[in-house]
Design a protein around this nucleic acid. Sequence first.
DNA 1: TATATAATGCAAATGAGTTGCATTAATAAT
DNA 2: ATTATTAATGCAACTCATTTGCATTATATA
Lengths: 131, 131
Amino acid sequence: MTRLPLNTRITPSRKAMIDIFASTDHPLSAVQMHKLLKRLNINANITTVYRELEFLLNHTVIHKIDISGATTYYESSEGDHHHHAICTSCGNIQDVTISDEEAFLTNVRKPHDFTIKRHSVEFYGHCGTCN
Amino acid sequence: MTRLPLNTRITPSRKAMIDIFASTDHPLSAVQMHKLLKRLNINANITTVYRELEFLLNHTVIHKIDISGATTYYESSEGDHHHHAICTSCGNIQDVTISDEEAFLTNVRKPHDFTIKRHSVEFYGHCGTCN
DNA sequence: TATATAATGCAAATGAGTTGCATTAATAAT
DNA sequence: ATTATTAATGCAACTCATTTGCATTATATA
């Protein structure tokens, strides 16, 4: 796992959130995380959840995924590089991999002098259940 | 251009927005559009801008682009299929094309039974000026 | 020119996320 | 074990993008 600062304190909500991200292969929003914590009887304030997400993000424990819409989703940085298929009917999010992604990236005609730091590839459509 | 409903009324703000999208190769947010209209002395309410964006979206005159963050951007549906490179420093958005995009799409290992309706590919990094 | 109703303006509400500040609690120091 | 330091938290208030209800205006048609 990524190294957290030396002065990082292990609080119940922090531990739970780290555990949840580590054991879930599913992107989560702040509100969803907040509910999950409640079910574990960890009554953290939603502000605390947002702040912790920011903290975990800063320390690359998690990363954002860019899904169309107002809500930000986060997932663990562990696991292989992948993208997402979002069902526009039920909101379900599944992983998508691209074989030979390097080839794909070499086919990108990027603007002159633009330095790519990261990329986002998302597919929208209908999942098996909603088809 | 896409056909609008028969009962569509040509109001000053509608006409201006359609013209602006047709003549700009640049994604615009509701707030940016609102400012552009003001400069043309069309003092439409921001609500009207949002409603008109929704209308143009519904009639496929424009489409949303999915950029990380709270603000939604829209661009004309005219023009070739392309993606975007977003400068995370200055917010500048440039077009990106992928050569042989069909090949890229065939390399996508999509979930079983998932029907892809559209996809979004965005690159984040630093533009020439911010490098 | 009158009529129907699409489009608009305004105010208020919503939803996601942020911030200031006082309080609490995890850890280090004693 | 006790205390001190300060990271983490809770709460309320706020911002920002966007939406909604409702009364009013104005475009296109009869």
